[in-house]
Nucleic acid binder design. Structure first.
Lengths: 150, 150
DNA sequence: TTGCAAATTGGAATCATTCCAACTCATTCG
DNA sequence: CGAATGAGTTGGAATGATTCCAATTTGCAA
């Protein structure tokens, strides 16, 4: 069962939605709470399952809608690897992703500003990029149970 | 209509396939030739259409098979952006991709070795990555008709 | 309290990709 | 020479994530 949003997170949700003229709903609260509760880059299906524990009537379509809305107002990021199901990530700091081929787990990799800068600098003139996505693929020794979860 | 492979490209094909115990076939020759002829990061469907001009009986399944085979033996790379159809790219030099949101075109961006090196260095200990994928999204002034095509 | 617009819902539709069983073809072996 | 083998090809069916849609429901505002 998912914890309610903290006052702080609820405000963040409310404000982000407001900037694009949208409202907080019970469904959006729960979906957002699910994302914050376990930051393991869940798929839509994952979110759906988890959210349903708190709101059994919730529909898959609504989860798609909520997540799309969140992406639209900058609350969460989409994470794609190859053509697997899209995953969602509430970490707004600039970061790359590492996909462990053995486990399928996705880890956030902190991205120092100077790297971003040097990447931007390799673009030929005339190329203006709003978004850079970096993903590593390989294996990690997940000995330390310290994952990207909360 | 697609040009036949040059002797040199045919050898490359033959050798790459041989390393994984596979053979050159008429279908594989044509699919490979299509990729080399116009390096605009075609989708499977694109390749299918173009290849059919030279070989009307070619099936879509075979195009999927050929491309998968080529990826497997390192002859071509897959390019994914978000969850759009997979595109294919015969450029084997390390490079990133720039996806123009206005046109949908994909451009290769040369990747200096020192950037790759510095990217590798941001991985925490225990993370071993075989593959790094970098994709930019934005707009480019495609005034110069100099694209990534041949 | 009525009306409206936004959100939600369940199910159907879409679309890329994968799967599969039948077929082709070149080559090897008796 | 055939027959057997096996890789490769083929068309169509199946899959699975995502999108679409028309019918409610909801929360406000007039």
């Amino acid at each position: 069962m998912i914890q309610k949003l903290t006052e702080h997170d609820r405000e963040k949700l409310q404000e982000s939605l407001a900037t694009s003229g949208q409202k907080v709903t019970a469904q959006r609260e729960i979906v957002f709470a699910v994302l914050l509760a376990k930051r393991d880059h869940p798929t839509v299906e994952d979110v759906f399952q988890r959210a349903r524990e708190s709101m059994p009537g919730l529909s898959l379509a609504t989860v798609y809608n909520c997540l799309e809305t969140f992406v639209g107002c900058g609350l969460v990021r989409q994470v794609n690897h190859e053509r697997e199901s899209t995953r969602y990530c509430p970490n707004l700091a600039p970061h790359a992703h590492f996909r462990d081929e053995a486990t399928g787990h996705v880890h956030d990799i902190e991205l120092p500003p100077e790297i971003i800068q040097s990447l931007r600098s390799i673009l030929p003139p005339g190329f203006n990029s709003e978004t850079i996505e970096i993903s590593f693929r390989g294996r990690s020794q997940e000995t330390t149970a310290r994952s990207t979860s909360n």
